[in-house]
Design a protein around this nucleic acid. Structure first.
Lengths: 257, 257
DNA sequence: CGAAATTTTGATCACGTTCAACTTCAGTGG
DNA sequence: CCACTGAAGTTGAACGTGATCAAAATTTCG
């Protein structure tokens, strides 16, 4: 590895997506290099721009370095359900890249800096180095669990519980990639976004949020949120941290078929 | 392959889980054999028994051959949200097997016949044959999309729309594994189960279901459901079939690192 | 500074929950 | 075979939550 690629790699090794992967597996210099070599996109998308559009083919994987985005479905009656917020370290094109056509639209909520590769390039890497195929499984599993919790949230929790759960989820996901403090974080989007995540109307969200503040659960200054008693919030929102096991290392004889 | 294993394999090749996989990839005799060799569990679990229990470690993958199960979360306030119904061909232990402890409980809604293996055995196969790692990714992706649709359902659809979407989803999933006719299927569980999937109360579910019948959308005899006008239902429920792309085959040079 | 977006508050109303009773049906034992 | 039992389905009435619509207050941004 020459000086240039080493420098590139240094930056890459601090990428929040790499931080995510490190939660599941150890990554050698060579692994980072393999991943980095896939990257053929490196861009910043500005706020309000669509990254993926419902109904169009999308065959890439993009890794968010900085910024927020929302993956959502617009229903025929005009209602919008945000399926997931995308934070630094999250992957765009998952699941859309694996469908004939994207099912959801992804929009930048802030300017978004990202790197990306084609699905085929990534899949080819999986054939050569099965660890990355497992990493993809783990990422997809993570995604599935996030969505499952979301369905529980909108299905059976009261508005206050939903908000509590939502804030804690975002907090823990941001903390994973070093974007949150012990008890607070920045939340750079409007309450309309939050209401479309949680399946509530804006006024009701606002009122319930005000109640959470009045009850001393959270503090809200501008777009910074601070938890007063995180344990109490976790109880209120039935929040449980998500602990994926590490990817088991290869064992036994390797057999190349 | 001797006669016995060929016979075993014949049965295995008709397994609904194998049918699911064939939706993503071609499976050679050898592939089937590889998979089959992992199986170390083959049992029938009777109705009402728990297959996975929230809070306990679970390190298996089990493939449902026959029967229905429900994956759910019981909240502290006594409410239950069913996160997914498990049908023939579905996998138990996904996502629970990848967490330090299961987050959801899985209960048999009918007698359930299943085969299973340990997570480690499956992962080891992935190291030897990366195709199976990708297959796992595809399965997890499928799961994630199902959950995302579920969140949309409970978040922003009216009760009638939710029911329509739910029935169509189950129908299409059953059809994938040959367990449904063109316009109908058996739905062997109570309305309470359905209400806990959809986040509705039992009486309201019942009334809305009655309305769907009155409006000539569906017929309901006992536990058999029949669609009168499936296109109209799809419109009502905003239903879109799920089309995962096939797993791209390996291309270029194979490199064993 | 003006315009637009966002947050906040208020009043009204409908939808869906809750609780309760009643019906229907399947399974069981007398 | 029918009475009994318990589970599931159905219906009704009352209530409350959260939506809707509207407007004011506040913030953000061009």
């Amino acid at each position: 590895m020459n000086i240039v690629s080493r420098l590139v790699s240094e930056q890459w090794s601090r990428h929040p997506f790499v931080a995510r992967l490190r939660g599941y597996m150890t990554l050698s210099e060579g692994d980072l290099e393999s991943l980095w070599r896939l990257i053929e996109i490196d861009m910043t998308v500005e706020k309000r721009r669509d990254l993926v559009i419902d109904g169009y083919e999308y065959r890439k994987l993009c890794f968010i370095e900085e910024g927020f985005a929302a993956r959502y479905k617009l229903l025929r009656n005009g209602r919008r359900q945000i399926v997931n917020l995308l934070l630094p370290g999250d992957v765009i094109g998952l699941p859309s890249g694996f469908l004939d056509k994207a099912r959801y639209t992804v929009t930048a909520l802030t300017d978004v800096k990202l790197q990306g590769c084609s699905i085929n390039a990534y899949v080819n890497l999986c054939y050569r180095q099965p660890r990355f195929g497992l990493a993809l499984s783990w990422l997809a599993m993570h995604e599935a669990i996030t969505y499952a919790e979301h369905a529980i949230n909108t299905g059976r929790r009261t508005p206050a519980e939903r908000i509590a759960h939502f804030l804690l989820e975002i907090h823990s996901r941001l903390a994973e990639v070093g974007r949150a403090s012990e008890s607070g974080f920045d939340l750079p989007f409007s309450q309309e976004v939050m209401s479309d995540v949680l399946g509530l109307s804006v006024p009701h969200l606002n009122r319930t949020l005000a109640k959470l503040r009045a009850d001393g659960h959270v503090e809200l200054n501008g777009h910074h949120i601070k938890f007063c008693d995180i344990r109490a919030l976790e109880l209120l929102g039935h929040f449980q941290p998500l602990n994926l096991i590490p990817i088991p290392p290869a064992s036994g004889h390797k057999r190349f078929s």
